[in-house]
């Protein structure tokens, strides 16, 4: 075990996989000479050289498409976007090529590619730089979407993603990059996709979260404990594939569920989870499933307003109280 920050865990996964497999390379804006916009790829250019750590100009659609083409004929690209927001200009490549080539070719070609970047809010970066993009991508069959909350999961899941035969979208967070945690050193220790983690056990209510909101939900659970309420926190880690069983198992125990995440309330992953709970655990529910999402506005710059619209401990507590009929 080593104590690593989240960013170092992501880097460790890339380095180990690039040392293991010559076909793996990293491409993106500022990943090489600049050492990464968020220093995730620091030192990698020196280690692997410009053939495998490739600085791209500002051409998200271009280098995403090139990586898809390279993946079709046998390479295993890791594409870094400076943030997931910028993937919007590569959306056609991801939606129409990465996700569809296997099907359109009748299974002749697959696209083993990893697209990774920080996602969602990042403290006052405004409406164009704060999108929670997992909601757009998780809808698409052909794609996989991961959003780990801890350094150990970041490393173990990124390694799984790089070894996967299908396109995997890997959601990090600027607000998590400095989070420290214990990370296994074993380069063959992978964290599988589609398996949620019970981040905290409880019996009165289930809070389902992923990425940064796992940490916010754990804070809320600690506050609830002081009031004598035992909250279970499920860290999904993987959005597609979704660990439906873990969610249902927890709700069968607690009979109440709150889904906490960044992203707007209209549709999205939270609505998907609510749907599955009501379909699969209807008889076990003692209250409607509630969602604590980003409020239904573009992200405001003002610090207080930003805190107002993104999900917070008080808003999670409010939702928990509602499903417990305590308010």
């Amino acid at each position: 075990m080593s104590t690593l920050r989240y960013r170092d865990a992501v880097r460790a996964a890339m380095i180990e996989e690039m040392e293991r497999d010559e076909r793996v390379f990293l491409v993106g804006e500022e990943v090489g000479h600049y050492q990464g916009a968020y220093k995730v790829s620091e030192g990698m250019l020196e280690r692997f050289g410009p053939k495998r750590v490739i600085d791209a100009p500002i051409t998200e659609s271009g280098f995403t498409g090139i990586s898809i083409g390279a993946a079709m004929v046998g390479l295993r690209p890791i594409v870094e976007y400076m943030t997931w927001n910028f993937s919007a200009v590569a959306f056609d490549q991801i939606l129409n090529n990465a996700a569809k080539i296997r099907q359109m070719s009748g299974g002749q070609f697959s696209v083993p590619i990893v697209l990774r970047a920080p996602n969602a809010s990042a403290r006052q970066v405004g409406s164009q730089h704060s999108h929670a993009m997992e909601h757009f991508y998780a809808q698409v069959p052909g794609l996989k979407v991961l959003a780990p909350a801890t350094p150990a999961d970041a490393k173990g899941m990124l390694k799984s993603a790089i070894r996967d035969e299908d396109p995997v979208l890997f959601m990090e967070s600027e607000t998590l990059y400095n989070v420290k945690g214990e990370v296994p050193d074993d380069p063959e220790l992978l964290v599988p996709m589609g398996v949620a983690n019970v981040a905290r056990e409880g019996k009165d209510v289930t809070i389902i979260a992923w990425s940064r909101l796992t940490h916010v939900s754990l804070e809320a659970a600690a506050a609830l404990e002081k009031e004598g309420i035992s909250a279970e926190v499920i860290d999904l880690r993987s959005i597609r594939p979704l660990d439906e069983e873990a969610i249902v198992k927890s709700v069968r125990k607690t009979h109440r569920a709150v889904v906490a995440y960044e992203g707007w309330p209209f549709g999205g992953v939270g609505a998907e989870i609510s749907d599955r709970i009501q379909r699969l655990a209807f008889d076990d529910l003692d209250a409607p499933v509630l969602r604590v999402s980003t409020l239904d506005y573009p992200m405001p710059y003002n610090a207080k307003l930003e805190q107002h619209v993104i999900p917070s401990v008080p808003r999670i507590l409010e939702a928990v109280n509602q499903v417990l009929y305590r308010s």
Partner: peptide
């Protein structure tokens, strides 16, 4: 024959990517 594609221009970077792979190897 690496495909026919339905979005105008969307396949052009894909073609470049296959050339990237050839050079890489």
């Amino acid at each position: 024959m690496l495909g026919g594609y339905g979005i105008v221009g969307g396949h052009i970077p894909i073609g470049v990517g296959t050339a990237f792979a050839s050079k890489y190897r």
